[in-house]
Design a binder for these strands. Sequence first.
DNA 1: AATCCGGGGTA
DNA 2: TACCCAGGATT
Length: 366
Amino acid sequence: MKKTAKKRPTDEFSTLLLKWNKEKNTRDMPWKGEKDPYRIWLSEIILQQTRVEQGLAYYERFIAKFPTIKDLAAAPDTTVFKLWEGLGYYSRCRNLLVTARYISSDLNGVFPDTYDDIRALKGIGPYTASAISSFAYNLPHAVVDGNVFRVLSRIFGILTPIDSTEGKKYFTELADELLDKKNPGLYNQAIMDFGAVVCKPALPLCPTCVYNKDCYAYLEHKVNELPVKEKKTSIKKRWFYYLLIEHKGKLAIRQRTGKDIWNQLYEFPVIETTAEQETAALIDMAEQQEWIIPDKYSLSFVSPLFKQQLSHQLIAGRFISIKADRSGKLPAGAAWVSKKEMAEYPFPKFINQFLEKRDAIDQTLF
DNA sequence: AATCCGGGGTA
DNA sequence: TACCCAGGATT
């Protein structure tokens, strides 16, 4: 039996972390200790840029409806998007389907078990590949997520911006050095729990923290300045005027396509502008589009102003209800659906918040 | 290297 | 409001 290697400075970090984890960490989550790579993968995709509290219910619903990756792979797109509805970042859902179908068909349902093969899957980047390979297969890859950036920058006093190329490289290398190579899964889980519970973004629990005797940020009173981020988000305003065109008891909807927000979700025919518009001007535009035919419709309702704040955009707009006696042209790909059928389609939050209030606003609306 | 992609919680 | 969250893809 070889003697233990000489203790390096960085060993102290993981020793304290695992000690905290064993003695103080009471955080419990359904995927903790999970070994089924499908469940681990699903939880990680759901949790990308998403708080545990927000993603939890989605995870439970997905597992209940799709117990195995083949169940997920066999589901229609719309069914899966409907289950994802409201969670945001819908490209995750698209990539989830692509990967589920690839593994089911090409890999006979067997999840890849090396870091590189996992990393190559759609929707899986460095973080998720490290998480899956360490949790499912105990491979020595350190996770670097928002928690890790925060914990390491504060304790070690790293001032390099975390959203710079240099910063990402530096933090990744440090994280891999610090990783307990014998317990990668346990270590990775512990550091993220620690960041979420103790070394929180706001009001971290420094007075009782196991690192407070030598934490750079705590000793230098820079806890609130770390981690450093260099880019500020700029927000642009967009106006969405949705036309609820009703004809023979049905409403026109279409699927969003392209590279814009809410790709693959559904919506009503929309007139988008960069400034607020009067209803009359919008009706004119709808006539010019030939969505409605002059004298063959009646304007029945204009909603109050609705707003939604996204990360990089502020969406404002109204819902304009029109009863059409004759059907005009519709936007490409649009179809007529009944109220009952509407429930099957995934809509963005902006539309759902209107649909939920619709009955309270006007009982006569579709 | 910069930008885009949601929705919700918190101070 | 501004910032952050178990990030990744695209340009």
